[in-house]
Design a protein around this nucleic acid. Sequence first.
DNA 1: GAAAAAAATTAAGCTGGTTTAAGAAAGGCG
DNA 2: CGCCTTTCTTAAACCAGCTTAATTTTTTTC
Lengths: 189, 189
Amino acid sequence: MERLIRHIEKSVVLTPEEKEIIATTFHSKKLAKKEILHSEGSVCQYNYFIAKGCFRLYLITENGKEQVIQLGLENWWISDYSSYTSGRSSKFYIQALESSEVHYINRSEQEALFEKIPALESYFRKNLERAYAASLTRIEYLFLLSGEERYLQFVGTYPEFAQRIPQYILASFLGISPEYVSEVRKKRS
Amino acid sequence: MERLIRHIEKSVVLTPEEKEIIATTFHSKKLAKKEILHSEGSVCQYNYFIAKGCFRLYLITENGKEQVIQLGLENWWISDYSSYTSGRSSKFYIQALESSEVHYINRSEQEALFEKIPALESYFRKNLERAYAASLTRIEYLFLLSGEERYLQFVGTYPEFAQRIPQYILASFLGISPEYVSEVRKKRS
DNA sequence: GAAAAAAATTAAGCTGGTTTAAGAAAGGCG
DNA sequence: CGCCTTTCTTAAACCAGCTTAATTTTTTTC
């Protein structure tokens, strides 16, 4: 749980007792590559902190294809926020793309923890501000950049991450076909 | 300020003293139709609660066109979150689309208010959860729906809102050309 | 380390939506 | 009301990126 506590301490101050409460309240789980953390059809009851590895959040479209909505790696939180906060059933899958480990908590545990440790609500508020701003930036890029530009920009900005995940998953995340990624790569080499 | 306080009280409980602090801390501003609330190039120092009217957040692209990134109406918060939270200068404009009124606060006032009124940080945390979930849903629609489907879906879901704003602004928000909106409307009628 | 499965490449044909340009309609203001 | 500006429509040519399908390369499994 040290990685999670270190991440929280980047935003807020915690007492030793508070760290102890956090360490005993969160649950942990290890996942093999390709293992599913959450499935479509059920409520997403947990908010997951990625301590190791990486994940994709995706759905199956009407015509049976997978569309990747989000990617997450170490120090990110991943969850179907719509389902997690509303209690409605989820349309998404969350899958480990590598051998991974998460620390997680459910909605009522989280709310109870905010009562005991107000600094933790502050951490989540700041984290949500970052996540929301990042999500708006992503919308901005979807509008402003062509598929080719989005691919080149991603690979330029996160070269090591682009290596970690299969190309067809990155293509789907960027909203282009894997064939088109091949074309762009060929053109650029 | 009643509208803002009523909105906060949908999420958390406030004492009369806390309401008083909120009413005296927030600032208010009225804007005429088309008036600019925030401009590109400066830091977006405020977080704005829309008490009346509606707004668009947009940028000017390299080739001089306007791209609408966000729309907001009564009871929404609008700001360039990236700039507001980081203090970096903003790429966006925020403009009133109707005669409007906002209540606003700056970053340090907001943080100071969270110290005095912890329930307010809870309100913002919950609000950010909603905003973040909505933003992910929007990304999902950008991937799953065609331009035509996005237009029909928007008009079907928010018919009165679609009436309030010019068609070319809605087109830009949906990521399609105004000419194509005309085509879709013709086809459907 | 061979066989099977998964992922990436190539190429050709196709389409959803853009661009451009001009005219029509609607809205705002003195 | 009448003029001027803003918004919306129409149509034709065009293209970025998709689809399909076959082949090659890489990875996984036993």
